[in-house]
Amino acid sequence: MAYTDRDIATMDTIINRYPRKRSAIMPLLHFVQAHDGFVTGEGIELVAKKLELETAEVSAVATFYTQYKRKPVGEYHVGVCTNTLCAIMGGDEILAGLKEHLGLENDGVTADGKVSLEHLECNAACDYAPVVMANWEFYDNQNVQSAKDLVDSMRAGNPIPPTRGPNSLPTWKENSAVLAGINDGRAGEGVQAGDPSLLGLKIAKKGSKA
């Protein structure tokens, strides 16, 4: 899809945040994903042009980071944490369950383009294990059934909202735009903290054991 003048203007705003142009490469690649769904050749060439780099320099960066995708992912990209703690607490079973349920291998996308599946490394939510992420929003304390329900709701076009996140689940492209630094105005939605985050505070306030 072609980039409009408005897209280019947005890219310029991103570039202008930095003392040196080249620093904008990562948000611009997120922006390309917001626009194209993944890092397209067109996107790489455009970023190279905007930052006055060679295309090889841009693809070298794009291929280093796991979140930049080389092929389309689903409208809802589901990641199951299978790093040690989550894996042991049930992540392995959740991933296996979802693979079977969706008929997908790791990095696969459903035929309708709605859901893609990936195993993830630690997502800094270990006290909520096992954790599932969708479009990089938290789904805490999952089990095999809840994860299946989640992807079914996505396929039905009405995804269950995240545990600690906005009131409804944004699409992959919408969230990529947030990662590019574009404020979607939804910071106020959702809880300020989940129960485990508050546990120590609660205990301290009670002045006694849990």
Partner: peptide, 16 residues
């Protein structure tokens, strides 16, 4: 440039 990461890292060009 060096592309990819870790054990998959390799030298390469941009395809075009």
């Amino acid at each position: 440039t060096l592309n990819e990461r870790g054990a998959l890292q390799q030298v390469g060009i941009y395809e075009k």
